[in-house]
Amino acid sequence: MTDTSTWATKKGLAQMLKGGVIMDVVTAEHARIAEDAGAVAVMALERVPSDIRAAGGVARMSDPSVIEGIMGAVSIPVMAKARIGHFVEAQILEALGVDYIDESEVLTPADERNHIDKHAFKVPFVCGCRNVGEALRRISEGAAMVRTKGEAGTGNIVEAVRQLRDVLAEIRRLGGMREDELFVAAKELGAPYELVKQVAAEGRLPVVNFVAGGISTPADAALVMQLGAEGVFVGSGIFKSEDPARMANAIVQATTHFTDAKILAEVSKGLGAPMRGIALEAIPDQERMAVRGW
């Protein structure tokens, strides 16, 4: 008996991406640079987050022809973003045959209450989260991979670090609870009890957890890997840097050798300027992307 697109295959692809770097690309040319630098997957989108932030207005799913161009250019998995709650964009992306859909806060949300019912799809989904409750809500909706959101397009790692620490600290806290305390924890987290119980027992989220939003140097990547990330998404950090191919390659090396300071020093040399960053305080509340999604 053969079954396609099962939970094991959806979650399993994310397991294969671990220890790797997923890079935002806007053209087929970018995608080839990313693949040559050692990316494990590319995220196809119309503009990188820092340009979305600069342009303002409504950010949507990319033009399908751009996505198809990228799918034709590389042999590694291709992911693409749909707006939060926009299940028709997701249907279109599934019809194109993308390998993963990111239901992403980087785009303008399409629904203020509901996320996509991801169980209804054969293509797997990755979703953003800021804490364990949000991660488990997304997983209960069918997400086969999660990533902390950070604050996309800022080149500032501070929000990513805060969220990753929150997630991992909460997992440790759950692990120390008595069984009868987990019921209240589930209520307080706003997450299904069965998933909360699983996290407490296993000491980890039920799916792979990457970090996104603000990684712009090899040291940033190694920082979140040492803290406990299972891999990284890099958005604007590569193609907004002075020498994208070198930066991309250096971040890949740093994600593999994240505990080896000598190698980190070596790969960090002479990369040119990283992307220009933004202090979080300089971003008005209504322009923060991390707070999108619930």
Binding site: M1, T2, D3, T4, S5, T6, A8, T9, G12, L13, P77, E94, G97, V98, D99, Y100, K122, V123, P124
Partner: peptide, 10 residues
């Protein structure tokens, strides 16, 4: 094929 063709079997 692509991810949509991933599968499990005995």
């Amino acid at each position: 094929g692509r991810q949509l063709d991933s599968f499990e079997t005995e």
